[in-house]
Simulated scan of single mutants.
Amino acid sequence: MQPEKRVNRLRTPPPPDPRPSSPMPPTNRPNSGRTTSPSSSPRTTSSGRPSAKKSAMNMLLRKQWQQGRAYVRQHPWLKMVSLLIARTILVLFLGSIAWVVALKYLPVWFTPLTISRKWDTIGTDNSSTIYKTWRPFEEINKEAALAVVASEDQQFPYHWGFDFDEIQDAIKENQTRKRPRGASTISQQVAKNVFLWTGRSYIRKGLEVYFTVLIELIWGKKRILEVYLNVAETGPMTFGIEAASERFYGHSAYTLSRDEAARIAAVLPNPNQFSIRRPSSYIQRRTRQIARQMRALGGQKYIRNL
């Protein structure tokens, strides 16, 4: 008779219980009114899989994508057209950046606005001579620079191309004004005068925003103001501060006084209607207002660190 073998019950698990010969029938308990858990919801499974509705939508999108690819394979010209459009957009994008970089250093001798004014005089009795003289920023009296900032865009040294507070104020005022008031900054005016055609459209406005961002990033404030002082329309067929000073005052823009600079800035909203040489009572009143604003801003030191 062999001795009974000891079993280490701490290391060896006990033998499993024998399984029942037949499964127990499930009990049908009545629903006591308890809400089902989120895991039993028909929309998602317990493993976090997407709902049946989302799966059906994914299958529909996948099917449409496959049908689109098959349609393009059946019509090879569509692929050629899409590639041509993509390459055109890329060329225009790179070309616009190169154009902006080049004009950071080169004088802006002509703009779409000067060409338009020249074209309008063809076949008429009006003079077709364009008065325009480029002057570097250092050769223009800073009173002129301060005057246009005080008149057109007092937040010019601080914003990044757009004055959103002024835009909101203009939207509120234009709800009751008969003639809409603009809220374009000096940067926006330079962008549309130098790079865009004349007129109004949503496409032009979108391009204006695009070029405004570019010149703010690439040119900087000083170059933007320099270009504005040279391309802004200051009178009939007259563009720039230097041309206006020589034509209407008889001397260079380097020797402009504060009142003379303020009068040039006063006619900028409509230089073909208002006159620098023969200012109306409105222009005289506006000139005094701009001169007061120039003093309130602190004089030339306001634009010294552009």
Rank of each mutant, 00 (worst) to 15 (best):
S128I: 00
P14D: 14
K104P: 02
F248K: 05
R304D: 13
V231K: 06
S32V: 09
Q2T: 09
L106Q: 14
P271K: 03
I218H: 10
K301D: 15
I85Y: 02
I171C: 08
P15W: 15
A52N: 13
T111P: 09
K5Y: 14
V213I: 14
I186L: 15
A102I: 08
P42A: 12
F110Q: 14
G298I: 00
L92I: 04
I167W: 00
G298E: 03
R9K: 15
A183E: 05
Y254L: 10
N270Q: 09
L214E: 07
Q74H: 09
V227S: 05
T185P: 12
R295I: 10
E246R: 06
H251Y: 01
F164I: 13
R19Q: 01
I97T: 09
E139T: 13
K79N: 06
R73H: 02
P271A: 05
V101F: 13
S40W: 04
G161E: 01
D165S: 11
T124F: 02
L225N: 03
T121I: 00
K205C: 08
T88C: 08
S47G: 11
I97W: 09
A191H: 03
G240R: 01
E226Q: 10
S46R: 08
P42F: 11
L90G: 05
R181P: 02
K54L: 14
T12R: 15
Q189E: 05
R19M: 09
R117D: 00
S280E: 02
L83I: 07
E242T: 03
R29L: 14
F195P: 04
L256G: 08
A86V: 06
S82F: 11
P15K: 15
E233N: 09
T287N: 04
L229F: 02
K79P: 00
T36G: 07
T185Q: 13
E246V: 06
R304V: 01
P30E: 14
S46N: 02
S257A: 03
P236Q: 04
I85P: 00
T35L: 15
L196N: 03
I303V: 11
E233H: 06
L103H: 02
V91P: 01
R181L: 02
T27G: 08
T133C: 04
N272L: 07
G206N: 06
S257K: 12
F274Y: 15
Y254C: 02
E173Y: 10
A262H: 14
Y249W: 04
P157D: 11
N174K: 13
P42R: 12
I130R: 13
D259C: 06
S201T: 13
S245N: 02
T121A: 03
V149Q: 04
R117N: 07
G68A: 13
A144V: 01
W160N: 08
Y105L: 15
V194R: 10
S47Q: 11
L146C: 05
F137W: 14
R135T: 06
V149E: 01
S39F: 03
I85A: 09
Y105T: 15
W99L: 12
I218P: 04
D17W: 14
Y228T: 00
S55P: 01
R34G: 10
S275R: 05
